[in-house]
């Protein structure tokens, strides 16, 4: 119950943050101008429109998580609003989860709005609105649970600036993990230790590349496929995302429980 009360309050706080609207407006603008970019691009203009729209939703979702999430817990400490909350009969883990779910709710509502704008726009310009696109967006939603957990983890331990840097860094590395493995394979012969190190890095870092099936989703229509990836693969990716999120939240709770304010 306390988690929900704090989550709802966090949602109220986040929807009053101007940066949310700035980012949302930019995302909508990007979706709307994607047709124009499609006209001047090589290849099918509707494909480019769809591709850019998916990317805009993903990118701006992540930016909201980073910009709002990384300051979330620190702000409570800095403004001392935390004092009156933690003195109530609640556990610290409830506070951390409340902040997390509140921010996630904000991001989901935002992504839902962007998805509605995106699908509406696709229908308007005559591009196909497929199940594969829905699948790609669903995995974007799951990816945001991981990115939000990253932001909350760093926010529970550090200042907003450092949290934003770390979260952005891990978010970027997370997109490149596939290349980390490829690089390891290349180095297998010349530097086996480097391969082992890269493999360890691959296992620890959030493998956000797993959630990126946007290209496959755009091509699914042309290839006459209903889904971008199989349901089994989708389930694996979802389970990975949820497990990674749970681990990050446990780490955030562990750090936050030990802090003195």
């Amino acid at each position: 119950m306390s988690v929900w009360i704090i989550a709802l309050n966090t949602f109220k706080e986040a929807v009053r943050d101007k940066i949310l609207y700035v980012l949302t407006v930019f995302a909508i603008l990007l979706i709307l101008v994607s047709r124009g970019i499609g006209w001047v691009s090589y290849g099918g203009e509707l494909t480019v429109t769809t591709d850019l729209g998916l990317m805009a939703i993903w990118l701006f979702g992540a930016l909201i998580a980073i910009f709002i999430g990384t300051g979330m817990i620190y702000k409570e400490i800095d403004k001392r609003t935390l004092y009156t909350i933690l003195s109530k009969p609640i556990n610290r883990w409830q506070f951390v989860l409340g902040k997390y779910f509140g921010l996630l709710l904000t991001i989901y509502v935002n992504l839902a709005v962007l998805t509605a704008v995106f699908f509406g726009y696709l229908a308007m310009v005559g591009a196909p609105v497929t199940l594969a696109l829905g699948q790609a967006l669903a995995l974007t939603f799951v990816e945001m649970t991981v990115v939000t957990a990253l932001a909350i983890f760093f926010s529970s331990a550090s200042t907003p600036v450092l949290s934003a840097i770390f979260t952005f860094l891990l978010f970027t590395i997370g997109q490149l993990t596939k290349w980390v493995v490829d690089l390891g394979s290349v180095l297998q012969q010349s530097a086996p230790w480097a391969e082992k190190m890269l493999l360890a890095l691959y296992r620890v870092m959030p493998n956000l590349h797993n959630f990126n099936i946007r290209q496959e989703a755009v091509q699914a229509h042309e290839l006459h496929k209903a889904l971008a990836i199989s349901p089994g693969e989708t389930l694996n990716v979802v389970l990975y995302g949820l497990s990674y999120t749970a681990a990050l939240l446990l780490a955030a709770i562990f750090v936050f429980r030990r802090r003195n304010f």
Partner: peptide
């Protein structure tokens, strides 16, 4: 903490909440 009511020095509250919303929020907690 069920037995405690606490007011810190120079208490701060969420600026976007009204007085009644603030009290209801703390009451729920």
């Amino acid at each position: 903490r069920q037995h405690i009511g606490f007011m810190p020095e120079n208490p701060y509250f969420y600026e976007y909440l009204t007085a009644i919303e603030t009290l209801v929020f703390y009451g729920k907690l």
